[in-house]
Design a binder for these strands. Structure first.
Lengths: 111, 111
DNA sequence: TTACTATATTGCAATATTACGATAATTGAT
DNA sequence: ATCAATTATCGTAATATTGCAATATAGTAA
C-alpha cells in the first residue's frame, strides 16, 4: 500500500502526525532553526545555508507550509517565511502533556 | 532520489527529525496515546484497539522503538512497552525552545 | 522591452513507507 | 511433546518521499 489510513484515526491524532511528519526530516528542522535565528523573517537565502538545491528547499518549504508549521508572504521578489506559532503551541501542548503524565505515574516498569 | 541526505545535517537536527518522524503517523500517535492511558505498561492488546492488522502494529512498534520513543521488554509471551522519557524530554526541550524564542521576538511580520 | 534575480513547478529516478497475508518464533499451559 | 496464544519477520504490492535538472513564473531595474 503505502497510503496511511488516516480516515481510521481521530482528527487530533492526524493533526499531531501531520505536524510531526513535517518536522521529520533534518532539512526541515534545519530550515525551522534557520528561520528562528533571525529577528525578522526575511529568509530568502536559505539555499545558501543548506547543502541542498534550490528546488529541493522550495519543496521542503512548501511541505512545512502545507503542514501549517510556517506561513509566508510574498515580499518583493523574495519570500518571507515565519513560524506559525499556533502549530508550535499545538505540538508543545501535546508533548508537554505526555511529559507531565509520565511524571505523575512514575513508571515502575521498563527500566 | 528518496534517501535523505542525513550526513549533511547536524546530529541535533537528525536527532529531532528521527523522533518527529516516528510521531509522524497517526497510528503511532494513537499507539503512544494508548500506552500513556495505562498506569502500568502492559500493552499487549493494542491490536484490538486500533483498526490495523497485527503485523502492521508490530511494525509501527518497531519503528517507535528504533527511534527511541518507546522501550520494551519481553514479559511472558507478551510485550511490555513504555514511553522512553528521555526522548520526550528531547522533543519537549526543542519545541519549548522554539516557543519561547517566538515569544521574545514577537514577530512583526507574516500576520 | 530586456536583462537580472529569486522562488515555484514539472518531470523523473531512486529510495522509503505503509499495509497485510503467510509464516516463523517464543512462551505458557496441559 | 503438543497446543494455544501472542508477537516478530518475510515477502510483496501500492503509494509516498526525496532530490535535482530543466523550466516556468514573478518581481526589479535598467
Amino acid at each position: 500500500m503505502g497510503a496511511s489510513k488516516t480516515e481510521y484515526f481521530t482528527e487530533k491524532e492526524n493533526g499531531i502526525a501531520i505536524l510531526a511528519k513535517a518536522l521529520g526530516h533534518p532539512a526541515r528542522v534545519a530550515i525551522i532553526n534557520y528561520i528562528l535565528k533571525y529577528d525578522q523573517c526575511i529568509c530568502g537565502d536559505i539555499v545558501n545555508e543548506l547543502p541542498l538545491s534550490q528546488p529541493t528547499i522550495s519543496q521542503h518549504l512548501k511541505e512545512l507550509k502545507q503542514a501549517g508549521l510556517i506561513k509566508g508572504e510574498i515580499e518583493g521578489n523574495s519570500i518571507c517565511y515565519c513560524i506559525d506559532e499556533k502549530s508550535i503551541v499545538k505540538l508543545s501542548d501535546y508533548i508537554n502533556q505526555i511529559h507531565s503524565k509520565l511524571q505523575t505515574k512514575k513508571n515502575t516498569c521498563c527500566k
